[in-house]
Nucleic acid binder design. Sequence first.
DNA 1: TTGTAGGCGTTATCAA
DNA 2: TTGATAACGCCTACAA
Lengths: 342, 342
Amino acid sequence: MSITIVDIAKMCGVGVTTVSRAINNHPDINQETKAMVLQCIKENNYVPNNSARNLKRSVSKTIAVLIKGINNPFFNRMIQVIENEIRKHRYSFHLQRVDPHQDEVEVAIELVKEKRLKGIVFLGGYFTHTKERLEQLTVPFILSTVGMTEDVERNLYSSVSVNDYLESYKMANYLIDQGHHRIAIIAASADDRSIGKLRLEGYKKALSDHGLPYDEALVRHMKGNIEDYSMANGYAVTKELLESGTSFTAIFAISDSLAIGACKAIFDTGKRVPEDYSVAGFDGLDISHFYNPSITTIKQPLDRIAAETIQILFEMIEKKTAHIHKTFPAELVVRDSTRAIQ
Amino acid sequence: MSITIVDIAKMCGVGVTTVSRAINNHPDINQETKAMVLQCIKENNYVPNNSARNLKRSVSKTIAVLIKGINNPFFNRMIQVIENEIRKHRYSFHLQRVDPHQDEVEVAIELVKEKRLKGIVFLGGYFTHTKERLEQLTVPFILSTVGMTEDVERNLYSSVSVNDYLESYKMANYLIDQGHHRIAIIAASADDRSIGKLRLEGYKKALSDHGLPYDEALVRHMKGNIEDYSMANGYAVTKELLESGTSFTAIFAISDSLAIGACKAIFDTGKRVPEDYSVAGFDGLDISHFYNPSITTIKQPLDRIAAETIQILFEMIEKKTAHIHKTFPAELVVRDSTRAIQ
DNA sequence: TTGTAGGCGTTATCAA
DNA sequence: TTGATAACGCCTACAA
């Protein structure tokens, strides 16, 4: 069917070994022979079959990034940095999207065999896997900005992220300090057990620390029939909140996209931000800066998180260090969407 | 090293063929044997090696989507639809990101061999490849919302997209009808030969059709040192435009993100949209609806484009139809960022 | 510096 | 319904 290494060898009048050496620029080959072979390869448009290579190779310097929820603009920048770092280490980079309902560990296990991976980065999503399952992952891996349940033992994996609980607390605290006592929160679905939950907990803690009551009417969960963490979801939830007649002076949305949807809903009822309602987000996406008004948010240090993710992974790969858990502080960025009230 | 099909065969006391049959649920196998084998596989966490499978298999019902510029939020929705359609046809789906500087056809050729692809979708990017190179692509492929130079013969590939030239003309025309005679455009880099160029040409044509002069001072190219089509780029360009003292009443940005950056720049100088300047975008991203003010834009029918892309590809694969080129009309969505002037 | 041959893990062919 | 066995295309001892 397709042209193979044997064909090239014949055409060049050399052995397959020689062709292989030319391709993989192995040292033990005459430069002239190599040039000749390479020339022949180019002329005949020969392309090595990766499946065959991977099958034969015992190792291959490649790192895979498994990303859950690729629609999250949050990850775009991170991937750039991560890819960059991986290439700096002269490894190749494989990006694999994982469906929301797919088991990322299963995908990872398959990929390890297929591509002879050296390491794995899990980006996003929630992580709830049994110890037994994780142990099937025979290469170092690290969770980056992944929500984790507390059930999994921390000595099974490494991780890098911000402290969602604390950062959320920080934001709620700030709003309270600005005089807001009735703060609505746009939270994840009620059964969320990940960052959504953590961010909600942070909010609750801030309230209780200030002696403010926790009012269920102010806790608004994202709609199940609209895309999670989307502007449309923030809009729908806020619309409902406004129409409910519940009184409040600020909205804390657990993502910037939700916050933008919230603003839009407020505008649509003829109200203003921050004059009528303060609105705060979370993540620090570019759009939070460019939106009108610019959105007060918790800015995650994406670049540092990404760089550290790779750094730790390589330490695990090369120095076989133990599991590391790193938490980065995020920054409360006060902008125009929130204001102090009396 | 890792457990293989042979190991499983031995453990079950059957031949490898039988195990293979169990895995691929081939009909010629006793249901009890199959159950037993599958059980054994589960217990031992056996995972078949994909490289070996792909190597041996002559065909595999999978379709790859090669996406250039994954940071474009425009594609997220399209990918969802495309994946969905592919799965409906009971094919598997492989998403592959392509670097901006990488040759997508080269990647495709490699992938065809590695994965035994049945078809390919090229999403985004520019397409400038020689006939010779394209002919190495031995499976059907289709360009979806890809900018194309006119050089490539149209009988070499299929394509689906909007008519960027015409739609751009439509927008410029609309602005002119609203009384704007000095319309700045945020265009691609000067050497762009793709959609950026087409959209600029549409703008030029509209001007000339209305007898308006083409003023170089109003044509602002994106900055090379900032990410293409980003909000930051739109901001920088507009800032410069405003500071240049050039007079204008409207800005036509060739993407929604650029338009948002433009708005921000305008706000930052204390001016308003649309009272002081009208701003229009292109693409119809969600954010164009949610932004404040909502952005007048050209809305591309993403869902239809995506669905049609797959539809045509499958016709090529299954019915071996000829190359098809389909153009969808986009919609001029008038919103709050533009207004009529005297 | 080069070539031969064996094997990577799977599927497909064929005979049993 | 099953099981040997020969490919699939490549890399890599080992030998020359």
